[in-house]
Design a protein around this nucleic acid. Structure first.
Lengths: 137, 137
DNA sequence: ATAAAAGTATACTTGGTAAGTGTACTTTAC
DNA sequence: GTAAAGTACACTTACCAAGTATACTTTTAT
């Protein structure tokens, strides 16, 4: 029940970009150094964030990365989903055939876990990077 | 960000025991069959639950397992912690030296993740097995 | 007393996945 | 046209989740 390391790095990278003046790019190398993230691993993560439309990448000399939209419009949930895919608290929630009892909707555990997952998603969606940047919350 | 399979099995085993008349034992073999859990794996999980004081074990012929206390006093959080240990949403929350920025308390991400973890714990503690047994919630 | 039915202890296996690397390629500014 | 950026994808390594094996102990019934 833990977020993975890539997600943690992604949080830091997005927070870093949130702190830049609007429109300014940062190269992967700079982010990696500042946030102490292995560069090649960061590049991979940045591609996930780009694919998800959270950051924008610019190739070529003096290229780099910037947020693709206002940091107030980027939540921790967005970042988690970009890196790990949708949150799944228990495999029975996504694969009923994995459920040893498989009567999904009638299983009280299933219902409880689903509700817990919803809470988790709501909570993650509560934090946006404009607030995080300025240490609100 | 997923609970592991052992925890899922533990939920089912505890729910099963919650449904027994008070004081009645069930052998591991019966639980395993009913809940479709590999027996040797279940035995291992039952030992964790026993060590945590959630179930009570009785050895010898006509031994078995029973809840160690009222199902209303056993929450999903208790079970998760018995099997996986305390919930840790991000490793920086438990190992500041793992945090690439390591100024723990001042890191806005740290604060956010900690608060999310707290919410998660509260939510898990909200579900007890007396309610789950009767499909409340 | 002893055999059978239960749980206990501990070590092992296996497969998958997290985390990180390597090599080769493409785009763009100068 | 070359150097500085990002891209693509394959590979490695190590750990850990999930499950299995072997040997042991406790208890009850006969």
């Amino acid at each position: 029940m833990k977020l993975n390391q890539a997600t943690d790095y992604a949080f830091r990278a997005v927070l870093f970009l949130s702190q830049l003046p609007k429109g300014q790019l940062a190269e992967a190398k700079l982010i990696a150094e500042q946030e102490k993230i292995p560069i090649r691993f960061l590049l991979k993560i940045l591609r996930l964030l780009t694919a998800a439309g959270i950051v924008e990448s610019f190739r070529g000399v003096s290229g780099g990365y910037a947020l693709a939209r206002d940091p107030g419009k980027i939540t921790m949930k967005d970042v988690v989903e970009a890196v790990e895919g949708p949150l799944v608290v228990n495999r029975c929630l996504v694969a009923p055939e994995e459920c040893s009892k498989n009567f999904t909707a009638r299983c009280p555990l299933h219902k409880a876990l689903f509700s817990i997952q919803q809470t988790m998603n709501k909570e993650l969606a509560n934090y946006n990077f404009a607030d995080l940047r300025t240490c609100k919350h």
